[in-house]
Amino acid sequence: MLAGMALALSELPVELMVQHGLERRVCDRGGEREVQFLFADADRLLPVWRNGRLQILRWGNRRGESAHLPCTAWTQLDTVQNGGWSDRAIESVVVPATMGLDKGVWYRIRQGIRGLVALDERDRPRVYVICEPSSHYYQVMTRGGSWMPVLIDERI
């Protein structure tokens, strides 16, 4: 299961960096700076293209946060397609990413990941990462990981 992702710093507008205090998430990799969004972060966030602009939204839902939404950070493509979310107003979104992280492996993502945004009882948007059963390659790479994020126009 996707444990986090990184986006090149150059892809994030300064005002978003300031507004969400993202500076402390900045890391250097081979001389290029990136912003990391990890599932393990206390403040769990993801960048999302929504309504034509890049936003930073809460990633999933934790116990004690929203009683209205499922307590998870991921949702299966099958569930989405079979109407598992049909009783809620949801939007399909793109989570831009330059790399994904799973079981310690940073792997290249060329465009991004499919996500789904749902509103909680206080109308705050939360984003869920859409997953599908892992390809053989992904499964071996992540030492048995059964789910991989649905990537945009890319199969690994």
Partner: peptide, 26 residues
């Protein structure tokens, strides 16, 4: 075909995703 990979430590994984079959100098 992917400028992003320049300057970074890059590993190409084999067909099973288990082994590094090529690596950058980094």
């Amino acid at each position: 075909r992917d400028h992003f990979l320049h300057g970074k430590a890059v590993g190409v994984l084999g067909n099973q995703g288990a082994c590094v079959i090529a690596k950058s100098y980094e």
